[in-house]
């Protein structure tokens, strides 16, 4: 693993024809849609609004708070710490638990206004190799500065949670180079609380700091 090959990814959005008009239907949908849908609704907001800090909440939380007007449930769904999950299955179960707990705790049912239903979608991801290959940390930092945010996104978000590689691709490569401290630091980063360009700058700064270790 001496070299780091930069890949990039591009997403296609699929419409599943499944919709929800209240919290019960949202729960029912979350239980049946494919993993690629859970991934879509917990990451789309971040990819599409990657320039914002703080970023808008995940789709489930946003719809619950802003469309249903249930700010308590919305906050619970928003506060799910996605960085702590190793698989989509665990993440799905957490949303299911929150919604089941909420529905069991209250008899209040709110239906959304007509036309404002939650529409379940899914991401189909196409992964492409880029021509960029880093042979050392200096080259890595130089390339990371110029690849698209899609490439950064693939190696940080998709690699860990969707491809279930345990940690992001950058940290895995740093570890293979014997840069354990850099690997640990970059692995501990919470990418969900940065803008993508902010995340890019932070990783580059870390690499430059540890490059000569």
């Amino acid at each position: 693993m001496g070299e780091f090959h930069f890949y990039t990814k591009l997403d296609q959005t699929l419409l599943l024809g499944v919709k929800a008009g209240n919290a019960e239907e949202l729960l029912a949908g979350i239980q049946i849609v494919p993993d690629s849908s859970i991934y879509h609704h917990t990451h789309r907001y971040l990819h599409q609004h990657h320039y914002l800090s703080p970023e808008p909440p995940n789709d489930f939380a946003y719809w619950t708070a802003h469309v249903l007007g249930d700010v308590v449930l919305g906050e619970r769904l928003w506060s799910v710490d996605i960085v702590g999950f190793q698989s989509i299955a665990e993440l799905r179960q957490t949303f299911v638990n929150i919604l089941e707990g909420h529905l069991a705790s209250t008899r209040r049912r709110i239906d959304c206004a007509g036309g404002q239903e939650f529409h379940f979608m899914a991401s189909r991801t196409y992964v492409l190799p880029t021509p960029h290959v880093a042979h050392n940390l200096a080259e890595f930092a130089h390339i990371l500065n110029k690849v698209s945010i899609n490439s950064l996104y693939f190696h940080v978000f998709d690699a860990k949670l969707r491809l279930e590689r345990g940690e992001n691709d950058f940290s895995r490569w740093f570890r293979s180079l014997g840069k354990t401290e850099l690997a640990e630091k970059s692995s501990r980063l919470d990418p969900y609380s940065h803008t993508l360009d902010g995340l890019r700058r932070e990783i580059i700064a870390m690499v430059e700091k540890h490059g000569s270790d």
Partner: peptide, 20 residues
């Protein structure tokens, strides 16, 4: 344009994650 290219390419591939 990206969405149209992916749409055309999708006709020749299957699965949630496609390695091109």
């Amino acid at each position: 344009i990206k969405d149209y290219l992916l749409l055309f390419i999708s006709l020749f591939h299957e699965g949630d994650i496609v390695y091109l």
